[in-house]
Design a protein around this nucleic acid. Structure first.
Lengths: 136, 136
DNA sequence: ATTTTAATCTATAAAAACCATAGAGTTAGA
DNA sequence: TCTAACTCTATGGTTTTTATAGATTAAAAT
């Protein structure tokens, strides 16, 4: 299941992507427009800022804005920040690899083989889709 | 993330798939061989039996066995039983469709569009892969 | 019939993840 | 200096996941 965090994050990014002249938008506006709990959205936007997707401006007329044009933001990075590893199992993760404690041999593991395929096909979508492609 | 339930279930199915003459295997044997908590495995195998993937025999010489040959078991069904809906969001699910409460219009929802693509590419893997393909 | 073996069922609880809120602090602009 | 808006820390509640305990039922062997 997709977490609310990711869902809200993507919606917020898409909302920011259609702003004229990429002007800063306040949390409150995004939260109202997209039906998202404001406090929760705060923490999500904060993590997107810390990871370099968003910029922010404090004070009057401030808000959040995209740092790069939507067409230059592939979803791989966004998804890793919001949802975590793309792989469904650590032993096939490119960025978060971990050995399975219960599994003596990866090469002969049936789950490993399957999840490798799933990772590749999912990754292929995220790599070839940018934020621009999500806009109406 | 893939749940332990699914991981264990797949391993158990693969283990059963390589049994000579498809003979019944006891829970205890699978649990030992695959490093799975026996009680937990019990409930997993039970649900696989109830959904028609496994048969069981009680008493001495009993155990669980595959009902169909591995090559005739696409992973779509198995995954739906073990892991639940394949879609990451109910509004793009074929078998478990549900409207999003927070989303006024599916057609213009950025998350919807993306998750539709992910569902299709994932489904494509599960549909074209059978239990047979997971064996070494 | 009785005993043994092994699946089945019900209930429950520990652990982790997820979602959300509260409130104080900080920064920037007017 | 006042106010608007982001930043940070902490915390609580709910749900899901994982696991365990114990009693029951069914089949086979004796």
């Amino acid at each position: 299941m997709l977490s609310k965090k990711t869902k809200y994050g993507l919606k917020a990014l898409a909302y920011l992507a259609v702003q004229p002249k990429n002007q800063p938008v306040q949390i409150a506006e995004i939260s109202m427009h997209e039906n998202i709990s404001q406090k929760f959205l705060e923490s999500i936007l904060l993590s997107l800022r810390k990871t370099g997707f968003l910029g922010s401006k404090k004070g009057k007329g401030g808000g959040y804005y995209l740092i790069k044009p939507p067409s230059e933001i592939p979803l791989t990075g966004v998804m890793r920040v919001l949802e975590g590893p793309i792989a469904m199992v650590p032993c096939v993760s490119l960025n978060f690899y971990e050995q399975c404690s219960d599994c003596p041999d990866e090469a002969s593991c049936s789950v490993h083989k399957l999840m490798l395929q799933i990772r590749d096909s999912t990754l292929n979508v995220y790599r070839t889709t940018t934020l621009q492609d999500l806009l109406v």
